[in-house]
């Protein structure tokens, strides 16, 4: 017994080193598996608060560009709205229940955005207090950004599409084939679309959209256009490079998407 204690005392630095190393390796391994990296994250009040403070300063420098983007989006939506009201008799659709969709959009601001690492995360300034919860989709006016992974009272962390753990269902706009969207870690504006079967007819410049096969994103949200494609090694699937509509290095504001039917759908799938 005495020898054990002596051994512990003699090697206490080394043992402490091993213990701390083990802890940090556990955190690292957790961070490489989806939905487990909750312990060390920037959503806590200290880091979230500091990032929020930083954002409140740096936000002013991008206001002009942001305004322009909002104006363009407004213009687009207004055109859509007017074509809608001309097409159908306006009177018929004044009742709000006839327009009912399960999706609710909420705006929020990006207060931290990474794009230079392999696993990138985005921090937004809405959390559980604003009824933002895990597994909600995040988009901008142009296209998708990612999925909410971890929330605190006032902040939430988004797992960006620029993350090696991210898998999002996406497909071609003109046909029903779909695959999963991944990222190879090289260019922050180009992502990869895998497992599109070779029967699909594709061309450079085709639009890729979300396919609404999960409860996270509604169908038809833009992702990007096909930049280049080739067949994979055993010639059964296409490997497609997709140029994103979003500039992932410059995201100002985003919308989170809540699906009111998510619980019902998930309970059926069980």
């Amino acid at each position: 017994m005495r020898q054990i204690i002596n051994f512990l005392i003699k090697n206490k630095h080394f043992l402490l080193f091993l213990m701390l190393l083990l802890i940090s390796l556990i955190f690292t391994i957790q961070s490489h598996s989806y939905h487990k990296s909750k312990f060390i994250s920037s959503t806590n009040f200290l880091t979230g608060g500091i990032y929020n403070w930083r954002h409140s300063v740096s936000h002013y420098f991008g206001l002009k560009k942001e305004n322009e983007r909002l104006l363009i989006e407004n213009e687009h939506l207004r055109n859509q709205l007017s074509s809608l009201t001309i097409d159908s008799f306006a009177v018929k659709h004044t009742d709000s229940t006839s327009f009912k969709t399960p999706f609710v959009f909420t705006k929020s601001l990006v207060i931290k955005n990474d794009y230079s690492k392999i696993d990138n995360y985005i921090l937004i300034d809405k959390g559980e207090n604003h009824s933002v919860f895990a597994d909600m989709g995040v988009i901008t006016d142009k296209g998708i950004i990612g999925i909410i992974e971890n929330t605190s009272k006032n902040y939430s962390r988004v797992i960006s599409i620029l993350n090696s753990n991210s898998r999002i269902n996406a497909g071609l706009k003109k046909s029903n084939q779909y695959g999963s969207l991944t990222w190879n870690g090289k260019d922050p504006n180009i992502v990869q679309l895998e497992t599109i079967p070779r029967q699909a007819i594709i061309r450079e410049g085709d639009t890729i959209i979300t396919h609404g096969r999960s409860t996270i994103f509604p169908k038809g949200i833009g992702i990007g256009t096909i930049l280049s494609y080739k067949l994979n090694q055993n010639k059964s699937y296409y490997e497609i490079d997709v140029k994103l509509f979003n500039d992932m290095t410059n995201i100002g504001f985003v919308y989170t998407i809540e699906n009111k039917n998510a619980i019902e759908i998930k309970s059926l799938e069980k």
């Binding site: 630095h13 080193f17 802890i23 940090s24 955190f27 060390i40 994250s41 880091t47 990032y51």
Partner: peptide
Amino acid sequence: FLALSFLLGLFIDMFSDSGGIHAAACII
């Protein structure tokens, strides 16, 4: 010193959402 280095790395990890990679590199 080891404890402080671990803490330093952990703070950086928290800010950059990177699990425990900075903490591990720091204590080593």
